[in-house]
Amino acid sequence: MSATVLHRPGDSPVHRLPPEVKVVGAFAAVLCVVATPREAFWAFGLHLVVLLAVWAVVRVPLGWYARRALIEVPFVLLAFVLPFTGGAPRTDVLGVSVSVDGALAGWNILAKGTLGVLVSLTLAATTHPRDLVVGLQRLRAPRLLTTIASLMLRYAEVIAAEARRMRTARVCRGHDPRFLWQAAATARGIGVLFLRSYERGERVHLAMLARGWTGAMPVPPSPGAGPWRWLAGVTPALVTALVCGTALWTT
């Protein structure tokens, strides 16, 4: 199965789990992280330990996650600004006045955001995008959504390739936009690409109708994950839930 930007093919037990189990596990784990009270610092440490345990099974290099987690940077910046912009009460840290509420809010965003992104990256790394859609179908997600996701997976590459060809054609005719006011041709190109994609959508729909499309994507049969694989798949999420519950109880 081919690699994508977010998927890293492998043969670990996590890779082999049915996608619907992984979707449920990841979703539940993120919910528990979000529900953990921000003051329970130890709980976030335990969440991270659970994640590291999963990574040890997955055997994907840490650098792989780190590079992709950079998407979180804008939120991290916001998290670092909050302690300085928050209101009273304030306290001194290394001689700098910081807001207690702001610092906690920043920590909240940083901890929950980072753990959420890392859990999502783990799901993406171990599950091919196509299997993610299959997993959502098996979980009876709205058919319209899974159909759109499945078509998007297929056509994103086609449209990106078309955009590249159009750009090459512009560059071959001497187009070299360096400043914002020279971007008109690029903007028109995007407009044309939108129209072409729209027209392609209509042609794809016709071709689907011609093969008996009735509005629902046929779902390939699945043997069912079985109770043991479900249990194995959601165990990390259960531990996270336990940690979250204890934190809620004690804070």
Binding site: R203, A207, A210, T214
Partner: peptide
């Protein structure tokens, strides 16, 4: 439904016809 099973149309641009991941 019966007609569409009996008449198989192969469209001009295969990218319009092939829309599944594999």
């Amino acid at each position: 439904k019966e007609i569409r099973r009996r008449v198989g149309v192969v469209f001009q641009d295969p990218d319009d016809q092939l829309f599944m991941p594999t």
